[in-house]
């Protein structure tokens, strides 16, 4: 009996529909709780982030122009692909320290969350649109429109669900996203990128980076071509940095809500466009 040498996956970045290594050539070791080396993970540089924003910006007009129905279909497809890879995700979460029941619960919740939000893609517009009464001869109505490129900072303690919770309401509303995965538990985010890459999601709609939050956050928060930043953690110093840098181009700074299935999460990265249409002239 020959014992075969296991083939381990290199966890690379996900930018513009491709899986490049960091342009800096850097990577870091990911060890499990017992100190065993599991994987090499790409350590993204600020230039990788810049490239990801370029990819997200160029994907934005076409993604925003798709019908809500079509975006919903694609997100539902993401759920289907996740379902097919359940066992892989559960095993990977366990490598990152979760117990078996905990891992199973997180993966199932993630799939259900994706399907839940997929259903919202063609419904939030009519919920959040309004006809506004005004005291002049105008028909005035307001509709939500995607804000643009959104940076998503995933929470440190959740490898998969934390990221997906924040990402889904952003992209279903027609935004494109650059997500920074949990630094402590980076593996599932990249495996999730493999799901996205095989789900008819156009290249560049979601870009996922792994790396040092301390290194990247100032560049993410300051980037003039990022329109909003969704911050999923509680660190006061980080939030202060984000708020200060975000003021450069008046980025929206979005915090998670208590209810992760709140439809207002979608509204958090929408702009309201109001039209005044003359009547009775």
């Amino acid at each position: 009996m020959s014992s075969r040498v296991p083939v381990l996956k290199t966890y690379k970045l996900y930018i513009g529909g491709e899986f490049p290594r960091s342009e800096s050539g850097r990577s870091f070791d990911y060890d499990d709780a017992r100190g065993r080396h599991i994987a090499n993970v790409a350590l993204a540089s600020r230039k990788d982030f810049r490239n990801a924003v370029v990819a997200a910006r160029s994907a934005f007009p076409k993604w925003a122009a798709r019908s809500g129905y079509n975006r919903g279909q694609i997100l539902y497809r993401v759920g289907e692909m996740l379902e097919g890879r359940r066992e892989q995700f559960i095993a990977e979460l366990r490598q990152q320290g979760a117990g078996i029941a905990e891992a199973r619960r997180e993966v199932e919740q993630t799939i259900d969350r994706v399907v839940y939000f997929a259903g919202w893609a063609d419904k939030y517009q009519q919920l959040f649109s309004t006809v506004n009464p005004v005291a002049s001869s105008h028909f005035v109505f307001s509709v939500p429109e995607p804000t643009g490129v959104v940076a998503v900072i995933a929470p440190q303690e959740s490898a998969l669900l934390g990221l997906v919770n924040l990402l889904m309401p952003v992209i279903l509303g027609g935004n494109t996203a650059v997500a920074l995965a949990s630094e402590k538990k980076p593996l599932s985010a990249i495996t999730f990128a493999e799901v996205l890459a095989t789900s008819d999601l156009p290249a560049g709609v979601v870009n996922i980076l792994t790396g040092s939050r301390k290194e990247l956050l100032p560049h993410i928060a300051g980037h003039m071509d990022v329109n909003a930043i969704v911050y999923g953690d509680e660190d006061g110093a980080e939030e202060k940095l984000i708020q200060e840098q975000a003021s450069l181009n008046l980025k929206r700074v979005v915090r998670p809500r208590a209810n992760p299935e709140s439809p207002y999460l979608i509204l958090d990265t929408q702009e309201i466009k109001t039209t005044w249409h003359p009547v009775g002239l």
Binding site: R50, V53, H219, G222, H223, M224, D225, Q245, L248, N249
Partner: peptide, 9 residues
């Protein structure tokens, strides 16, 4: 300026 720029400006 030290920050990445946006074509809108």
């Amino acid at each position: 300026t030290g920050v990445y720029q946006c074509a809108d400006y």
